[in-house]
Amino acid sequence: MPLRFYQTEPHQALVKLEGNFDSDTAPEIRKSLIKIVKNKGSESLKIDFSEVPNLGTAGVAVLVEVLRAMTRKGGALELVGLNDNARQMIRLARLGEIFQT
């Protein structure tokens, strides 16, 4: 699962995901994302979903973990480029407000 990390600004990081984010790929993405949150002192993390065709519940659960880690550090998490499927998945988990989709 390709995952690209950009430090766009001093306090702003962007992660671009490519490929499905489901129960098969979630373990690796989780590892990378948690590492990014831990190592970088970024105050805000942006995750780009424009290259993610499919978001599964496992992906949503990982996002919840990342969000929790970010809030603990006082940072913010923003999801951009969500397609319809991903949006529906997040809404079905009743997390639409939390992720502002």
Binding site: T57, A58, A61, E65, R94
Partner: peptide, 14 residues
């Protein structure tokens, strides 16, 4: 899957 226990817990809750 090889999901972590925490991820699985959140998924069950969802």
């Amino acid at each position: 899957t090889r999901l972590s226990d925490e991820t699985i817990r959140i998924m069950s809750l969802i």
